[in-house]
Measured scan of single mutants.
Amino acid sequence: NITNLCPFDEVFNATRFASVYAWNRKRISNCVADYSVLYNFAPFFAFKCYGVSPTKLNDLCFTNVYADSFVIRGNEVSQIAPGQTGNIADYNYKLPDDFTGCVIAWNSNKLDSKVGGNYNYLYRLFRKSNLKPFERDISTEIYQAGNKPCNGVAGFNCYFPLRSYGFRPTYGVGHQPYRVVVLSFELLHAPATVCGPKKST
């Protein structure tokens, strides 16, 4: 009989979020998941679920829940969905086509923008091939755009693969920082350890 609540607040209220190319993952297990707390949290810009209804989450049990978190621009949030393409979905964070879970995003301009620009948040701009679902690539190898080998030196046709967002408070909404948490639900042939409040007695 599990009684402790799942530590969703640790994920959602973290002081610093990860850059999207180096997205953070927390495994959540052996706890009671009260999703209504999240669902009623006012400032969400997006709360979209795939393969599961957000209002039914509290009735369900899962083997594991993974909480992935990172920061992207407002106009990139739409790429955090199954079957998407674009710089983020291709080179930074890719969801599987059969994704079961929820994508939760909110504007973090007050936290993550600075006058003069916040350059701490990076994304991958160049990559030889697209990421596989949930693949994480933190390499900083110089990207070779031409035929000539770069030998690890940036220059003509040789690019550092990461780019900084440089968030400023005055940017338009599409270019403002958004914090994103992706909850993915794993249902294995194993005992369920993460259940909603109704199922955990």
Rank of each mutant, 00 (worst) to 15 (best):
N1K: 01
N1Q: 09
N1D: 03
I2M: 08
I2W: 03
I2Q: 01
T3H: 10
T3V: 05
T3R: 03
N4K: 08
N4R: 04
N4Q: 06
L5E: 03
L5V: 06
L5G: 01
P7R: 02
P7L: 05
F8W: 02
F12M: 06
T15R: 12
T15E: 07
R16M: 10
R16K: 13
A18S: 09
A18K: 15
S19H: 00
S19A: 07
Y21F: 13
Y21V: 00
A22Q: 14
N24E: 04
R27V: 10
R27F: 02
S29K: 12
S29P: 15
V32Q: 08
V32T: 07
Y35T: 07
S36D: 09
V37I: 04
N40E: 15
N40H: 03
F41V: 14
F41Q: 07
F41H: 15
F41W: 10
A42G: 14
P43K: 09
F44H: 10
F45Y: 09
A46N: 14
G51R: 06
G51Q: 08
V52I: 01
T55D: 03
T55Q: 03
K56M: 04
N58P: 12
N58S: 04
N58E: 04
D59G: 02
D59R: 09
D59M: 11
D59A: 14
L60N: 00
L60V: 11
T63G: 02
N64H: 12
N64Q: 06
V65C: 07
V65I: 05
A67V: 12
I72L: 07
R73K: 03
R73A: 14
N75F: 07
N75C: 03
N75E: 06
S78Y: 12
S78N: 15
G83M: 15
G83R: 06
G83F: 12
Q84V: 10
Q84E: 08
Q84K: 04
T85E: 01
N87E: 01
N87W: 00
I88V: 01
D90N: 08
D90L: 02
Y91L: 10
Y91W: 10
D97N: 10
D97E: 15
D98K: 02
D98G: 06
T100H: 01
I104F: 14
A105Y: 00
A105V: 09
N107E: 01
S108T: 14
N109D: 08
N109C: 04
L111I: 12
L111Y: 12
L111G: 03
K114P: 00
K114S: 00
K114R: 14
V115A: 00
V115W: 00
V115K: 00
V115Y: 00
G116I: 00
G116V: 00
G117A: 00
G117Q: 00
G117T: 00
N118H: 00
N120E: 10
N120C: 12
N120D: 07
Y121I: 14
Y121H: 06
Y121N: 00
L122T: 02
L122M: 14
L125M: 12
L125W: 08
F126L: 12
F126T: 04
R127K: 09
K128D: 12
K128G: 07
K128L: 12
K128S: 09
S129Y: 14
S129N: 07
S129K: 14
S129V: 04
S129I: 04
S129G: 10
L131V: 06
L131M: 08
K132T: 07
F134A: 15
F134W: 08
F134D: 03
F134L: 04
E135H: 10
E135T: 06
I138D: 15
I138W: 11
E141R: 10
E141G: 10
I142E: 05
Y143C: 04
Q144H: 04
A145T: 14
A145Q: 03
A145V: 12
G146Q: 15
G146D: 07
N147S: 11
N147W: 02
N147Q: 10
K148T: 11
P149T: 10
V153Q: 12
V153T: 10
A154W: 11
A154S: 14
G155E: 06
F156Q: 03
F156A: 02
N157H: 08
N157C: 14
F160S: 14
F160R: 08
R163S: 11
R163H: 03
S164N: 14
S164C: 00
S164R: 03
S164P: 09
G166L: 09
G166A: 15
G166M: 10
G166S: 12
R168M: 10
R168K: 04
P169N: 00
T170H: 02
G174V: 05
H175D: 11
Y178A: 15
S184Q: 02
L187N: 09
L187V: 02
L187S: 08
L188T: 11
H189E: 15
P191K: 12
P191T: 15
A192H: 12
A192K: 10
A192L: 11
T193I: 13
G196E: 04
G196P: 15
G196K: 12
P197N: 12
K198T: 06
K198Y: 05
K198M: 04
K198A: 04
K199Q: 14
S200Y: 05
S200K: 14
T201E: 06
T201F: 03
T201R: 14
